[in-house]
Amino acid sequence: MNTPYISAWFDDDEKLLSGLKVFKEKGIKIADVLTPFPVHGIDKVLGYRRSWIARVGFIGGVLGAASALVFQAWVFTKSYPLNIGGKPFFALPSFIPVTFELTVLFAAFAMVFAFLIRSKLGPGAKTEIYDERITDDRFVVLVDINENHSEENIKKISAQMAEAGAMDIKIKLTENK
């Protein structure tokens, strides 16, 4: 099913932000904003909450630390205790380096996987290229008109967008998924 949406672009991040503020005031529903680099302040304007992937990272780290410590302790106290240079079997200072490294490793992987999975990105992931210049120098806004895609509503919204400084306002259809 092809749903229509309106796309427009700005050529500058400040214009984008002020334009978005106007859109929000006018009640225009913003489906997505696509930019060549992260625009600061956009999260606030669009009302995005802070991502929770950081917590996933933290949990990954804790898991890494716990598994490293438990494993080393088990190896050296239960499984095959060895006298290494007179050190105690539970040689905590010796266990710290590996524990630290695995904490970082697990946290890093957890974070990256959380990021990729949450954003539905990955090797070979299919994506819709709304505008080839998004990754170059264009700041594209996609407006959701699913609720009311009558001619007159589209005209009204387009006019409001043009007033706010948006360029090249087009009606498009989403690609078949």
Partner: peptide, 27 residues
């Protein structure tokens, strides 16, 4: 293929920044 389907979405950028910062904190 290598681009992982990146489209420049603001939400993705937001998470990307968060992730980069924490990776920096780990690295």
């Amino acid at each position: 293929f290598l681009s992982f389907g990146w489209k420049g979405s603001a939400r993705h950028w937001s998470r990307h920044e968060s992730m980069s910062l924490i990776l920096a904190g780990l690295a």
